[in-house]
Amino acid sequence: MKMKKMMLFLGLFAAMIDLSNAQPVQGTTPRKIISGENQFFMRPQWSPDGTKIAFTAEKNQGIWISNAKGNKLTQITDDNEAGFGFSWSADSKSILARPVVQVDDQRFHQVKAYDIESGEDRIIVENTRKLQSLPVWSNHDASIAFLMNNAVETRNSGKTQVKSASKDTPKAMALGNALKTTAGSETIEFDQFKDRYIFNVKTSPNGQKMVFQVNGLGLFACNADGTELKSLGHSEQASWMPDNRYIVTTKVADNGVAITAAELMLIDTESGSEFPLLSDADYIALNPSVSPDGAKLVFENVKDGAIYLMPLK
C-alpha cells in the first residue's frame, strides 16, 4: 500500500514538473494585417484597451493608428523619429513620443503627447539637447516623466488622471548602467554593468518586474526594486504577457550587414526556459507586442515591411 501511495505521489510530482515546464501558449500562422505600397511599417504596439495598434514607418518617421484588425489606418503625426520608443497612455487615447527637430546641423529632442482622437499634439518639452531618456507616462497619465540632468523630471501631461482602482504602475528609465523610476528618487544601480547601457526597459503589467537589455550581455529580468537579477540569454525587444511571468521576445541573427533571421520566443522570466513561437524563414520578426488579453501578438516582418498578427493558443 505504501509503495502504491509512493508511486502515485511520484507520478503526480512528475506530472506537476511536466506541467510547470509546458509551453503555456503556442504560436499559430501569422496573418498580414497592415502593409502599404512602397511603405515599410514597423514597431507595432497594442493600446492598453486592446482596440488599437500604433506603429511607425521607415526611419521611425511618424505614427499611425489602426484598429485591432489592422484596418482604418490614421496617421496621427509625421514628426521625425516620433516612431521610436513611443508609448500609449493608460486610457488608450494618447501617445507619448520623443520626436526630433533638426536646426542647422544640430538635433533637438522634443517631448510630445499626441491625442489620437483630435489629432492634436501637445509639446511637453521644447527643443532640448539635455534629454537623457525616452519619456514615460506617470501618475495615471496626469504626468510625464523623463531624465534630465541625471534626475527624473516630471511635467503636467495636460490629461486628467485616469480613474482607476489599481495602483499607478511605476515606470523605469535607463541612465547608463542604472535605472531610475517614477516611483521615487532612488537609483537602482547595477555595478555588474559598469560602463554599459541598459535599454529597452519593459515593466510588467503589475509593475512588480522589469526586463531590459544590456549592450553586449543580452536580456535580463529583475524585480522592480532591482533585486533577483537574472540573465535571460540573448533575446531582445521583450513584450510582457498579461500573466506577469512570461515575455515574448525576438532572437536575432545577422551578418553584420543585415538581419538574416529573427525568431519569436516565449521566455519564462522565472525559470529562463525558452519556447519557440515563430521560427519560419518567411519571417524576420521584430518588435513583438502582446495584446493586453494575451490572446494574440503583432510584430513587424523585415522581409516585407508589413505588420503581422499572430493568434496565440
Binding site: 520623443r98 535599454f199 549592450n215 529573427a262
Partner: peptide, 13 residues
C-alpha cells in the same frame, strides 16, 4: 545583434 546596436543608439539619442 544589429538591432540591439541601433536600438541602443536610438534610445540614447
Amino acid at each position: 545583434s544589429l538591432s540591439e546596436r541601433t536600438d541602443l543608439a536610438n534610445s540614447l539619442g
